[in-house]
């Protein structure tokens, strides 16, 4: 099928545009994007930069545009204006969702989205970084190398005991973990995580924080979260969005004491 050539071209492009780690390397640049839904401005001239191997948290009140921003990056929404550039070269607005995933951007949704009628093992198998064309899938076989990678990830997200269980039977927190595990199997350069700890127990939340901190340095992570304790645990740069624009940026402590931030969270 046609997509064989398409995706291999993108992969070549992606690997060509991923130079060996450069400390000040920008992995994703959002430039002046605006999105409006029937008059409502969800994003208003938003510009941001994410560095390679950085962990960044994004907070903001409801309707600040956090999810819309992720939609723009991953191709779910096309911005009315502005561009998203990946690895300095790839213009994301020209790619489809699947192509964006193939260049190395993984995304976890706000509501855990997994394949409920597949087993946990199969969920991870489908997520694995590999040839994703129809032709390949028709003849694909799970070999020992893949099996090892999957059990490794199962261990990381603490689901080894549930490998053969249907994913739909997992608890809410476990579903969140499975989705994170699927992202890891994708081995993306950039992970976008929309409210990854929603519905998790305190214990699970803490473990997730540990996991993210361990990923820092190997991947770039963007975490959208409402749980301030969790954000504090990540000890990262924090960006505050409000009404589709950036309000401020900085360390967690500095952001928390910023009067503008206090106002948007409490003042209304």
């Amino acid at each position: 099928m046609n997509d064989v050539t398409d995706t291999s071209k993108i992969k070549a492009e992606a690997s060509a545009s991923a130079p060996a780690s450069n400390k000040n390397d920008v992995i994703l640049e959002i430039a002046n994007i605006s999105v409006s839904f029937d008059g409502f401005k969800a994003l208003n001239d938003l510009s941001m930069k994410f560095m390679r191997n950085e962990l960044r948290c994004i907070i903001g009140p409801n309707g600040a545009g956090k999810t819309t921003m992720m939609d723009c990056i991953t191709g779910k929404t096309t911005p009315d204006e502005g561009t998203c550039t990946f690895n300095n070269t790839v213009d994301l607005s020209k790619l489809s969702e699947a192509e964006i995933a193939l260049v190395g951007i993984g995304r976890k949704f706000q509501k855990p989205t997994i394949f409920e009628s597949h087993t946990v093992f199969e969920n991870l198998e489908l997520a694995m970084k590999t040839d994703k064309t129809v032709f390949f899938s028709l003849f694909a076989v799970v070999d020992d190398v893949m099996r090892d990678r999957i059990s490794e990830t199962l261990k990381t997200v603490n689901l080894s005991a549930h490998a053969d269980q249907l994913a739909g039977r997992l608890s809410h927190g476990q579903k969140q973990w499975l989705e994170i595990g699927m992202l890891l199997m994708q081995d993306p350069q950039l992970l976008l995580l929309d409210e990854p700890v929603a519905g998790m127990t305190d214990d699970e939340t803490e473990r997730t924080g540990e996991l993210f901190n361990s990923l820092k340095g190997k991947h770039s992570l963007v975490v959208v979260e409402h749980d301030m304790d969790f954000v504090a645990q990540l000890k990262s740069m924090v960006t505050v969005l409000d009404q589709g624009s950036m309000l401020c940026e900085g360390e967690m402590a500095a952001v928390q004491s910023d009067p503008r931030v206090i106002e948007v969270y409490l003042g209304r």
């Binding site: 997509d3 394949f115 064309t133 129809v134 699927m182």
Partner: peptide, 19 residues
């Protein structure tokens, strides 16, 4: 079947559901 259950997730894993 994954497309049937959660097409969006399949797309964000890099599969093009069209084909």
């Amino acid at each position: 079947t994954a497309i049937r259950d959660a097409e969006m997730r399949v797309m964000f894993l890099g599969y093009n559901p069209l084909w």
